[in-house]
């Protein structure tokens, strides 16, 4: 799978994102890492230009409830409905449902194993093969 790993906003810590990027690579995926401090608009553009199937958003700064929905909206506005959005970092439990509601399909917090993320990605493959919704613009409801 071709996956963009992105750091939205002013958050300057990307050790986590880099570890994830490596784990995905070692799992056989093609990963495009954006680097730090990207705007939601830039991230949407990168997903489009790179023809990515999924985008992982890493946020540690507390701005997740603003930035992540903007990326999701941006993708839908550009009619990119089939791209999968997942998130990671420090995202408290009570903020998660609202992110699932805007189309995020998984949120991985501290302590997640790389195996679990790879399992999530292969579940996505199975789901999209059987026509079940996984994309950001497809029917919400299911999440990891």
């Amino acid at each position: 799978m071709r996956i963009v790993v992105a750091k939205p906003g002013l958050d300057g810590h990307d050790r986590g994102a880099k570890v994830i990027a490596r784990a995905l690579r070692d799992g056989g995926h093609e990963v495009i890492y954006t680097g730090l401090r990207r705007t939601p608009e830039e991230i949407v553009r990168i997903v489009i230009d790179e023809d990515a199937a999924a985008v992982g958003l890493s946020s540690l700064s507390g701005a997740h409830s603003v930035l992540i929905p903007r990326v999701c909206d941006g993708l839908r506005d550009a009619e990119i409905n089939d791209v999968i959005v997942f998130a990671g970092g420090i995202i408290p439990e009570h903020d998660r449902q609202s992110l699932y509601d805007v189309g995020v399909r998984a949120i991985f917090g501290p302590g997640t194993t790389s195996t679990e993320i790879l399992e999530f990605l292969s579940t996505l493959d199975e789901r999209s093969e059987s026509g079940e919704p996984v994309g950001v613009g497809e029917e919400a409801g299911w999440h990891w």
Partner: peptide, 10 residues
């Protein structure tokens, strides 16, 4: 692994 980490964009 056959995977790739592509960082040129950054």
């Amino acid at each position: 692994s056959g995977g790739a980490l592509l960082g040129d964009r950054m």
